[in-house]
Design a protein around this nucleic acid. Structure first.
Length: 312
DNA sequence: CGCGTTTGACCAGCGC
DNA sequence: GCGCTGGTCAAACGCG
C-alpha cells in the first residue's frame, strides 16, 4: 500500500525540467508517492543526480515553458489520466519493483563453423540458423529483462514542450500511438553505452498541457550537461553568473552539507521526508518573497531545523 | 561520416 | 487460439 503526501508550493516560473523539482516558480500541487515503498533507489538517483559532483561542464539548457512536475507513481498517472495506458502496461509494478540491474545476458559465443561453409546454401542455412538462434537469444534476454524491470518513476509536468531537458542525452528509439489518445508515446534511451536508463514521454489525453515522463532505470554515469557548483550558502537561484548556468538552475546546486548528502545518498533518500527535504533544498534558490509564502507548507512536511538550516 | 530520428515490423504479455 | 496493445528493433533517412 502506497501512501502519499500532498505538497503544495506556489509561485513559480517557467523553468527547465529540473526546476520542477526545485518547485520555485509555479504553483505546484500534487501528490508525491511515499518513496520509501518504491525501491532502494533515491529519487534523485533515478534522474542521475547522484552524479552531479563529478560533472563539470556548464549547463546549457534551453528553457522550455514548463510548470512544476508532480512526482507520482505510475499508478497515479493511470488514475489521473483518462488514457488507461498512459502510465504503463499491466505489468508495470513501477515503484515496488526491486532495483535489479540488468543481469540477463546471452551467450556471445558464435555459432560453430561448419566445414560446409563453402557451400552457399549451407552458409545460407547457417546464417539462417544463426539468425534464428540470435532471435531466440534475444527473446530469452527480453524475457528475463521483462521479469526484472528497473524501477520506474513517473512525473506529470505541465509543459508546452514534449521533451524536457534533464541533463542527460537521450536517443529516441521508438514512437507508438497510444490507444484512445491523439498523442503518441515516445521512447528514449540514454545515449551512454553503459547506461540502460529509458524514459517514456507522452502527453496526457485528458489534459494535453501535461507531459507525463516516465523514467526507468538508473544512470550509471555523470550527466554530460550538468554542472554542480559547490557554493556553500549561496543560492540566489536565478541570479547566476552565466546565462548558461542561469538557464539551468539545478536543484543540486545547493551547498554540500548534511542535507546534501542525505539527498544524494540513495539510502537516505528513501522516504517522503527526504523527498520533501529535496524539495526544500530546491527552494533555497527561491527569492525570499517566495520562501516566505511557502515555508509554512514545507514545515508541515519536514522538521523546522532542516528548513532553517537550508534557507540560510 | 557520425549521430539522431522516423517508422514499419516484430514480439511478448494479457484478456477474452 | 486470437486479437489487441505496449515495447523494442533496425533499416532508411535526415542533418550538421
Amino acid at each position: 500500500m502506497e501512501s502519499y503526501k500532498e505538497i503544495k508550493i506556489e509561485d513559480h516560473h517557467p523553468m527547465s525540467f529540473f526546476d520542477n523539482f526545485q518547485v520555485t516558480n509555479h504553483s505546484f500541487t500534487g501528490l508525491m508517492s511515499d518513496y520509501s515503498t518504491a525501491s532502494s533507489l533515491g529519487f534523485m538517483e533515478l534522474l542521475g543526480v547522484q552524479d552531479f559532483c563529478s560533472s563539470s561542464a556548464n549547463s546549457v539548457f534551453e528553457l522550455p515553458k514548463v510548470e512544476p512536475a508532480v512526482c507520482i507513481s505510475e499508478d497515479q498517472v493511470k488514475q489521473i489520466s483518462t488514457v488507461s495506458t498512459v502510465a504503463g502496461d499491466s505489468s508495470c509494478n513501477l515503484l515496488n519493483m526491486p532495483s535489479t540491474p540488468n543481469c540477463s545476458s546471452i551467450s556471445s559465443e558464435g555459432h560453430p563453423r561448419s566445414t560446409d561453409d563453402a557451400d552457399g546454401e549451407v552458409v545460407e542455412h547457417h546464417h539462417h540458423q544463426q539468425q534464428t538462434k540470435t532471435k531466440q537469444q534475444l527473446k530469452a534476454k527480453k524475457r528475463s529483462e521483462k521479469k526484472q524491470r528497473e524501477p520506474r518513476f513517473a512525473f506529470m509536468t505541465k509543459s508546452e514542450v514534449d521533451f524536457l531537458e534533464d541533463g542527460y542525452r537521450w536517443r529516441k528509439y521508438g514512437q507508438k500511438a497510444v490507444k484512445n489518445s491523439p498523442f503518441p508515446r515516445n521512447y528514449y534511451r540514454c545515449t551512454s553505452a553503459t547506461c540502460n536508463v529509458k524514459k517514456r514521454v507522452e502527453r496526457c489525453f485528458s489534459d494535453p498541457s501535461i507531459v507525463v515522463t516516465t523514467y526507468e532505470g538508473k544512470h550509471t554515469h555523470p550527466s554530460p550537461m550538468i554542472t554542480i557548483m559547490p557554493r556553500p550558502s549561496c543560492y540566489p537561484t536565478r541570479v547566476l553568473p552565466s546565462p548558461a548556468s542561469a538557464a539551468f538552475p539545478l536543484p543540486m546546486q545547493f551547498n554540500i552539507n548534511q542535507s546534501f548528502n542525505e539527498l544524494t545518498n540513495p539510502l537516505a533518500l528513501n522516504n517522503q521526508l527526504d523527498l520533501a527535504a529535496f524539495v526544500a533544498q530546491g527552494r533555497r534558490f527561491c527569492t525570499t518573497e517566495m520562501m516566505g509564502a511557502d515555508q509554512g507548507l514545507l514545515q508541515d512536511l519536514m522538521p523546522s531545523t532542516v528548513l532553517k538550516q537550508d534557507y540560510r
